[in-house]
């Protein structure tokens, strides 16, 4: 009973909080006194119209953009230059274009898992190979340059990275935009069953499922 209580209680812990956050880009006000509470394990879908600041919301969580006013908290700690690095290490991020650096796929993955913050993770090329075949990608992809692979392949490689990094929080920006229905459903199913906290930006109605909390507006 106590265990159950603990589980429910800790699962409700706020993972990410926006407190009265305002943000403008150029002369466009994207957020005004915006408040948001994402609990541990929540699945959030940002489905506001384009240009409304969905990507900016992800950038704010990552500390790539500073808010004009208000505060962002991650695990109860405010985002500051001192805390941001530790916070980033709990996140895996899929940007809209999945911006892998230039280089052979296998080498790019190798390099990412050699970052000092990722070194402790179990990684081998065999694991990458298994994921590649599990996601219906050709094995020849390993030796291709990231700059010549297709958008769909890139996106699936991004998902592979996210799964191998195994972080508690996933920030996904249009993560299925270049996929067919079957592929898409696979990743939506993954998000639904995972215990991770997920914030996903997408216009795609396929993501509008009951498990996702939908946010469509950042201004009151």
């Amino acid at each position: 009973m106590f265990r159950l209580f603990c589980l429910t209680f800790f699962n409700r812990l706020p993972m990410i909080r926006f407190k009265d956050v305002s943000l403008s880009l150029g002369n466009k006000q994207l957020m005004k006194n915006f408040n948001l509470r994402i609990s541990k394990g929540d699945k959030v879908l940002l489905a506001a119209q384009s240009g409304s600041g969905k990507t900016s919301l992800l950038r704010l969580i990552l500390g790539f953009t500073d808010p004009d006013a208000g505060k962002i908290l991650f695990n109860k700690k405010a985002l500051t230059p001192e805390t941001i690095r530790k916070i980033r290490h709990q996140i895996a991020y899929l940007s809209q274009d999945v911006d892998f650096p230039n280089g052979k796929v296998s080498e790019v993955f190798q390099e990412i898992f050699q970052f000092s913050a990722n070194k402790h993770l179990a990684y081998s090329e065999t694991m990458l190979r298994e994921k590649i075949s599990a996601f219906d990608l050709p094995e020849t992809l390993l030796t291709k340059n990231t700059s010549v692979i297709s958008g769909g392949e890139r996106q699936r490689l991004g998902w592979i990275l996210v799964q191998l990094l195994d972080r508690p929080v996933l920030l996904l920006d249009e993560p299925t935009s270049a996929m067919d229905e079957k592929q898409k459903q696979r990743f939506i199913a993954y998000v639904v069953q995972t215990k991770k906290t997920v914030v996903c930006v997408s216009h795609d109605p396929a993501w509008r499922i009951p498990e996702m909390k939908v946010i469509t507006n950042f201004t009151p």
Binding site: Y93, I112, F115
Partner: peptide, 8 residues
């Protein structure tokens, strides 16, 4: 930024 957000 992509690398920074994924552990770099």
């Amino acid at each position: 930024l992509f690398l920074l957000a994924n552990g770099a």
